[in-house]
């Protein structure tokens, strides 16, 4: 019998610890598929974040070095500057990249570091139990915004990807989602292009992936995915935010 679907070579034979309906496992798989298809398993180094995805190194069968919370871009900078012919990516959540690690991220992009960042935006702090994230939308209830996010008190959800697009050193930034099969396919294409931009030595690349967190949104997996399409994308529209990389 012909095998038509299997575990990517770049994934370990391990069971995900992620909650049912969580987007991390889908995004992990997409990255592993891209690594396999680009045939770079032995040349790639990943930087997992602090947060739910800190255990990414238990799932990826590639070299990985853990960064302190928010410092993924700086650690990735060190790795890449030391080994310019390797492919280095950081995997970061919204709190990690858009709150505590904003400075490191913006400056890495501005320097045009040849690294790729996978920015998983689920609108909450997942691992710590559902507090307000920098990307929590107005009115969204979280454990630290019991009455909903209030613009006057908490500010508006931060458009980090748009900010990064201003930086001259960034070459490819796209926002996608993993809420539907169509968008999952698009996400994989974006990740592929982001890696290729790095491999061509063009500059900083980033894919922001809107991802469901049913546990902390207190929704069913289906509701959480629907919420991304109906609500989250009104604040975070899915689009290519910047592409000076051209055809790769």
């Amino acid at each position: 019998m012909k095998k038509v679907f299997g575990r990517p070579k770049s994934m370990k034979d391990a069971v995900f610890h992620y909650c049912p309906g969580c987007g991390h496992s889908i995004i992990h798989r997409l990255i592993a598929e891209v690594i396999d298809e680009l045939n770079i398993q032995g040349k790639v180094i990943g930087v997992p974040p602090a947060g739910c995805a800190v255990l990414a190194y238990d799932y990826f069968d590639i070299d990985m070095g853990e960064a302190p919370h928010g410092r993924g871009a700086a650690v990735a900078t060190g790795l890449k500057r030391s080994l310019p012919d390797r492919i280095v990516f950081s995997y970061q959540g919204d709190g990690d990249i858009a709150a505590i690690g904003t400075a490191e991220t913006i400056h890495a992009a501005n320097r045009g570091e040849r690294i790729t960042t996978i920015f998983v935006n689920n609108g909450v702090y997942g691992m710590t139990g559902g507090q307000m994230a920098p990307t929590t939308i107005i009115g969204q209830i979280s454990s630290t915004t019991p009455g909903g996010r209030n613009e006057d008190r908490d500010g508006v959800p931060i458009d980090l990807s748009e900010m990064l697009a201003i930086a001259k050193g960034s070459v490819y930034i796209e926002r996608t989602a993993v809420d539907s099969p169509k968008n999952i396919v698009r996400t994989k294409k974006a990740i592929t292009k982001a890696f290729k931009a790095q491999m061509a030595g063009l500059g900083f690349s980033l894919v922001e992936v809107l991802s469901p967190c049913p546990t902390n949104l207190k929704m069913t997996p289906v509701q959480a995915s629907e919420w991304i399409g109906s609500t989250m994308t009104t604040y975070f529209p899915l689009k290519v935010i910047k592409d000076t990389a051209g055809k790769l």
């Binding site: 070095g65 650690v75 900078t77 060190g78 500057r81």
Partner: peptide
């Protein structure tokens, strides 16, 4: 951009 960034770049190189 900061001492924090510097020490984390150190971490990255040291890993290699």
């Amino acid at each position: 951009e900061s001492e924090l960034a510097a020490i984390n770049m150190v971490i990255g190189v040291s890993m290699t």
